[in-house]
Simulated scan of single mutants.
Amino acid sequence: MTLLTQDAIEKKLLRFPDWEYYENAIHVEFEFDNFKDCFSAMSRIAFECEAQNHHPNWTNVYNILTISLSTHSANGVTEKDFKLAEAIEAIVEVQE
């Protein structure tokens, strides 16, 4: 995978208004109504991560899910991260 430049990342982020780029990764935080809804989304995201063979750094505290994506083998952000971000957005959108 080829690393994306900062300019390319910022352009791609225009399609993902809730996501930010810093510390060599793209990041987002989702707030759900309750823990059950958050955990349900995490479970569905986990299946997508397995399907794409790409796994996020994430944390969950009650109804808050924080996700960071970077391609570890490339030491930064690649197209692979945006493909997973797009899938995550679709999953979370369906949940809401």
Rank of each mutant, 00 (worst) to 15 (best):
L3D: 01
T2E: 15
H27R: 08
W19T: 00
E48C: 02
E31F: 06
E23T: 14
Y22H: 15
E29K: 05
E10K: 10
E48D: 04
E48F: 01
M42T: 13
E31T: 13
T5F: 05
R15S: 11
W19V: 00
K12I: 07
F39L: 15
F16Y: 05
N24R: 11
I45S: 06
M42I: 15
F47C: 08
I26T: 10
D7E: 12
Y22N: 11
Q6L: 09
M42C: 09
L3E: 03
C38I: 08
Y21I: 00
F30N: 02
E20C: 05
K12N: 04
I9T: 07
A46K: 04
Y22G: 10
E10N: 14
I45M: 14
L3H: 01
E48K: 13
A25I: 02
P17N: 07
A41R: 06
S43G: 14
E23A: 15
T5C: 05
V28D: 01
V28I: 13
F32Y: 03
N24V: 06
S40K: 14
E31N: 12
E48L: 06
D33V: 11
E10H: 08
L14C: 02
F47E: 13
E20Y: 00
K36S: 12
A25C: 09
L4S: 04
D37L: 13
A25K: 14
M42H: 03
K36A: 13
E29P: 01
E10G: 03
V28K: 14
M1W: 00
I9N: 09
I9E: 08
E29T: 12
N24E: 15
S43Q: 14
H27T: 10
